[in-house]
Design a protein around this nucleic acid. Structure first.
Lengths: 351, 351
DNA sequence: GTGAAAGCGCTAACAA
DNA sequence: TTGTTAGCGCTTTCAC
């Protein structure tokens, strides 16, 4: 193993100078630089990262900006990722601090972002639910040269260190194919169900819908897809609207892109004797798991939110600590969950 | 952050003594020990792992004992895991060395194991394909107190630091359910296809079969499952046997638990105009991916061999370096791959 | 048994 | 612009 000391000796300068050349810091004469660079070219120097972090003796902080886990079961899952990351990075004295905002309030996003910036962290992991507010926040981070990772929702306007999430379009295609498969024997139409998505960043859901429709459009016997949109909060309205649409459009299969939508929907279906309608939902929420096991949901697609934050932290920590390069995008696999493999996912350590 | 130095000062001894107490090494007087332990009880000391590894300046070596990746596409996948692990652990000067044996020769396993032990590593990751030979090897490791992880195949007789793999029984159930789903519209029977499995550790395959049969037995209208066993090497015999069985038993769906079996099978099916038969296979082999995309295989179940070795190394490295405890078992999720999500798996970084 | 001190490879402050 | 040196927190050796 070659050390800085060795390079110094080989090039006839001191360790200080070698350090300066390697990290382009301070002033170095051209002659000295050339000597060092020559040696560097010939050998294959890899710095000892342990010594590096130990020597600089710094505590890094990474802040998380995510929806309040207490308000939504999907976002609650992200906390597992945070906890795991905390454990994993403890030896490096990495300080991980979450900041929460309300899922339905853009203002609370701003507020949380402001609080976060009161003592600026070294890096940020953020779920940019509110487009405009997120853009403003990211701009602020850019200005202060604070690196950040965006996850869950893809905002193409910014260039974070890394985006982490899934291909929403392809996710829609997958959902469509599963629904198609499972409802082959029934006659009727397919529908996509939008439940109170307006508040959340909609590109994500629009992409899912596009994929979903595309799949059925491309089928040998092209099918049309209905779209049921439920905006209000009122459960009665919800039921009326849903049942009305099902009857009117003769719907045999429902694709529900919001994690918590499936439970609401299945309740209504059961109540109205429409249990035969196929359902594809998202994510391993407790309620979804129960419904999957009892056959009331046919498939779930796993977005793995806990791993999304885990990997976000991973990339930032590697960036800060080890100057490692992160991929621009880390797209997660689109995981298909059935009654038969759901337990294997629950047992699995954050994977 | 509390340091050993602080503890020394608090308990009125030297850092050397504190070190001895913490690691139970060397001789310490009872009075000194008590003083240190008292302080240790009161504060919450977490050692700085960077300093620890840097200070001890040791290079750990982990050996891999796996089937020759050149001989089998499934095992080739494990090499990705090794490469990723190599990168990940480079800062810790972890030396990762693979040893290969032939998939069809128990003797070569012994030979490779012997070679491996010629300069004993600090830990071992092993795929115990050959039961007896593996047992002997593990015993040797136990004697020399070399920790090891077993992956892919579960041998219950030994207690490694960790077992990594999947629940084979449940995997069979999953395979059955997928086959059932996809062949619902056809009439006929289901079959499990054993291709030259005899050489590999068979518990694994037996468990898969048990799960597969169990699923169909438990169905409301219980179905029987045929079993086609092909032992020889000869492709002609293979074809005759397979086609014979399909015709005789009126088979509509085939479950093929060996990764490379699906390709052979689909070739024969196509050639004989039996493309309508449903197929569920295993793993993301190149050939399987092509067949999946073209609809000739309906589902693949992913065993994620690359991640299996990656995690094996992960546990051992943590054990050696940081004295972290590993789970006795790390069961991987049973991942369902379809034509629609296969690309998302290929793009995904080792996940 | 115990303490003092010299490393591990790097960073950063300081002196020249 | 350079070289020297004192850390970082721990391990390990050596003298007492």
């Amino acid at each position: 193993m070659i050390r800085i000391k060795d390079i110094a000796k080989l090039s006839g300068v001191s360790v200080g100078t070698v350090d300066r050349v390697i990290h382009k810091r301070g002033k170095v004469s051209d002659t000295a630089r050339e000597k060092v660079e020559k040696v560097l070219d010939e050998i294959n120097y890899t710095p000892n990262l342990l010594a590096k972090t130990l020597g600089s003796n710094k505590v890094y902080s990474i802040a998380l900006l995510v929806p309040d886990p207490g308000q939504d079961p999907y976002w609650k899952l992200t906390m597992t990722g945070l906890d795991t990351a905390k454990q994993e990075w403890r030896p490096y004295h990495m300080d991980l601090q979450p900041y929460f905002f309300e899922l339905e309030s853009a203002q609370s996003f701003q507020y949380a972002a402001k609080e976060l910036m009161e003592n600026p962290p070294d890096a940020v992991v953020c779920a940019p639910i509110f487009l405009n507010e997120a853009l403003a926040f990211f701009e602020q981070l850019d200005q202060q040269k604070i690196p950040y990772v965006q996850f869950n929702t893809m905002i193409p306007e910014v260039k974070p260190l890394s985006f982490i999430g899934q291909d929403a379009y392809q996710s829609g295609i997958l959902g469509a194919s599963l629904l198609h498969l499972v409802s082959k024997n029934q006659t009727g139409n397919q529908a996509i169900l939008h439940i109170r998505e307006n508040v959340q960043h909609s590109v994500h859901f629009r992409e899912k819908e596009r994929g979903f429709r595309e799949y059925f459009r491309k089928l040998p016997q092209s099918q049309t897809v209905s779209s049921v949109i439920i905006e209000g909060e009122d459960m009665n309205t919800f039921e009326d609207k849903l049942i009305g649409a099902i009857k009117k459009e003769n719907i045999k299969g429902l694709y529900i892109p919001t994690s918590s939508g499936a439970t609401l929907t299945v309740d209504v279906l059961e109540k109205n004797g429409l249990g035969h309608i196929s359902v594809v939902g998202y994510d391993l929420l407790k309620e979804n798991i129960v419904l999957l096991k009892s056959g009331k949901i046919d498939f779930l697609i796993h977005q793995n939110p806990s791993r999304q934050v885990f990997r976000g932290i991973y990339h930032l920590a590697n960036h800060l600590l080890f100057k490692k390069r992160s991929p621009e995008k880390e797209l997660f696999p689109l995981e298909v969950i059935t009654a038969e493999n759901v337990d294997s996912y629950l047992e699995a350590i954050l994977h």
